[in-house]
Amino acid sequence: MNDPEVVPEVPDSGTARVALTSAAARLLVKMTELHGPLMFHQSGGCCDGSSPMCYPDGDFKIGGSDVHLGDLTVEGLAPIGFYMSESQFGYWKHTHLTVDVVQGRGSGFSVEAPEGVRFMIRSRLFSDEESAALNGV
C-alpha cells in the first residue's frame, strides 16, 4: 500500500539512505520560511516515537551517540541533516527511509504540527546490492 510507486521520492533529494517525497519537500520550504534552516532527528519509543522530528537546525544537540544518515536536498534550501541515534540505527540500517507527509497532528516539538500535518517515514528494504554497498552485508 505504501510502495515506492505510490509514494515517489524526489530524485536526488537525499542520499542512498534517506530521501524526500515532493509533499515533504514543499512542506520543508514553508517550514524554512518560518523557522530558518532545519534538521531531522528520527525518534523512537512511544506516542510519536518512530516519527521523524523536524527542528530548527542546531536546536537539537547532535552528539557522539548519533549517526548522520545524510543531508536532504531541496532546491533553494540549505542542506537538511537527517540523524538517528546509533543504537536505533543498528535496527534500521537495512531499510531505506523516505520522509513523507500525512494529514494529522503529531505531538512532540516538531515544527510542522501547527500546520495540521505530520512528517512520517516510509520504508523499503535495501536490495542485496545496496546492502552490500552501504552496510557491507
Binding site: 506516542c47 510519536d48 536546536d59 537539537f60 544537540k61 505531538s107 512532540g108
Partner: peptide
Amino acid sequence: TGETTTGRLIMQ
C-alpha cells in the same frame, strides 16, 4: 511522557 527524541530535547 512521550518518545526518545523529544525526551532528549527536554533533557537538553
